[in-house]
Write a protein that binds this DNA or RNA. Structure first.
Lengths: 212, 212
DNA sequence: TAGATTTCCTGTCATATGGCAGGAAAATTC
DNA sequence: GAATTTTCCTGCCATATGACAGGAAATCTA
C-alpha cells in the first residue's frame, strides 16, 4: 500500500510538468541522484523535506550555534563565511540553485559551528532535520551510499581548491570562477568574491581591470 | 557464541600488554573510537584487517589506478602527492603512526585516482578492502556513524587548511607544522615540506634561516 | 675512499599582492 | 531630491615570494 502510494505519487509528479511539484521533483532527483536510490527511496526521502521561503539577509546558520538541518536550494543564492583570527570576514563558499547548503561538522558531529551562512537573495529551499536524516540514513541503504558519495565528492572538491589556491595565480582563480559560476560574478559584491579567492578587494579590482 | 568469543578476545588482548596484539588493539581503539561502536563491533571490525609490512619507497597508490583498500598506520610515515598542470610534484599530506591512509574519492566513488601515496620510511600497516568495509558499513550502525564522523572531520580539516593557506603567511604555516607534526620536519626532505606549505624550497630555506 | 648525486642554502633580480588613502560612482535612506 | 553610506577603482610604496643560478654539504654508490 505504501509502495503503491509512493509509486503513484512519483508518476503523478512526473506527469504534472506545469505544476510546482514538477520543479521540486527535478530538484530532488538532481540532488539525490545515485544508482542505489530507487524511486520509492526518493519518495521517502522527499517526504522528510519541508519547504521554506527566505529573504535576502536571512541567516541559515550563525557562529556558535549548532546546525540541526540542511537545505536543498530551489532558488536563490547563499554565502558561507568565517571570521579569521584578525576578525576579517572570509567567504568560504557560495550555494546556488540546485545545490545543498550544509555545515557538515556541526550537523554530523553535533557541535557548535564556526561558520555563518546568509542569504544574498530571496529564495526557496527545502530543509530536512538531523533526526529525519538519521532515520533515512540508517533505514535506506541507497541513501547512505549517496551520502557517502556526496561527502567523498565534497572532500575531493575541497582538496582541489586547496591545490588551486597555491598553484594558480589570483587571476587564474578569478577566471576559473567566471567560468564555473558566472552567476556569482554578477550577483555578489566584489569584496566577497575577493575573500573567496583569497585576495583583497584592491587586488581583485586590478585583476578585473586587466581582464577587460 | 560469537559474542562470547569476541568478548574473550578483547579481554585477552587488553591483558596481554607485552604482546604485539596489545599495540594493535590500541591502534584500532584509537582510530575506531566512537560512542556507538561497542567492543563487539570493534572486534568484528578488527577481524577484517590484515597486517602488511612495507619498505621505504613502496607505493600504496598510484595515479590512474583505483584504490581498493585503506590502511591504518601502526608505524612509519607516508606522503600523498599530486602533479599539478605544470607537472610539479605537490605534497598534499603526510600520514604518520596512528593515522589512516585513504584516498576517499577513488575508494568510495570507484574511480581512478589523481593521487600518489608513497612510503617515506619502512613501517607496518593494517589494511581493509573496500568489500569488507562495505559489509561492515551496512551491517554495523556504529561503524557507519563513525565513518560519517570521520569524513566530517576530514572535511573540516580540509576547509581549515584552505583558510590558513590564504590568511596565514608561509612562516606562520611552517611554525604551525612544527607545532602540529614535529616528526615530519625531521624526517621529510625540505622540498616536500615546502610544496605541502604551498611555497618553493627556496622560500622555505629562507624561512628556516630566519626562525633560527 | 673517490666520484657522483642529491639536498640544501644563498645571492640577485623580477613580480604579484597587500596596505593605505583618496576619490568617483552607485545605492540607500530620510 | 539631498544627504549619507556603501561600493569600487586607482596611485604609491612596501614586502613576501618566485625564478634562476651557483656552490657547499651531505648522502649514496661503486
Amino acid at each position: 500500500m505504501e509502495v503503491f502510494f509512493y509509486g503513484l505519487t512519483k508518476q503523478l509528479i512526473s506527469l504534472l510538468s506545469t505544476s510546482p511539484f514538477k520543479m521540486n521533483f527535478d530538484l530532488f532527483q538532481t540532488i539525490y541522484c545515485h544508482p542505489k536510490i530507487t524511486s520509492d527511496d526518493l519518495s521517502s526521502i522527499m517526504d522528510e523535506h519541508q519547504i521554506i521561503n527566505f529573504k535576502k539577509g536571512d541567516y541559515f546558520l550563525e557562529k556558535g550555534k549548532q546546525a540541526n538541518e540542511y537545505y536543498l536550494l530551489e532558488s536563490g543564492l547563499l554565502r558561507a563565511y568565517v571570521h579569521d583570527f584578525n576578525g576579517n570576514d572570509i567567504t568560504i563558499g557560495f550555494q546556488s540553485e540546485g545545490e545543498i547548503s550544509i555545515e557538515v561538522s556541526s550537523l554530523f558531529q553535533r557541535m557548535p559551528t564556526e561558520e555563518n551562512i546568509v542569504a544574498l537573495t530571496d529564495g526557496v529551499a527545502w530543509k530536512i532535520s538531523f533526526e529525519d536524516f538519521q532515520k533515512l540514513f540508517h533505514k535506506i541503504e541507497g541513501f547512505r551510499e549517496w551520502g557517502r558519495a556526496w561527502m567523498s565528492e565534497q572532500l575531493f572538491i575541497s582538496k582541489q581548491r586547496q591545490i588551486e589556491m597555491v598553484t594558480k595565480s589570483a587571476t587564474e582563480r578569478y577566471e576559473k570562477l567566471i567560468n564555473d559560476k558566472p552567476n556569482i560574478i554578477q550577483q555578489v559584491p566584489v569584496r566577497h568574491i575577493a575573500s573567496y579567492l583569497g585576495i583583497t578587494d584592491t587586488s581583485l579590482s586590478r585583476i578585473r581591470k586587466n581582464i577587460v
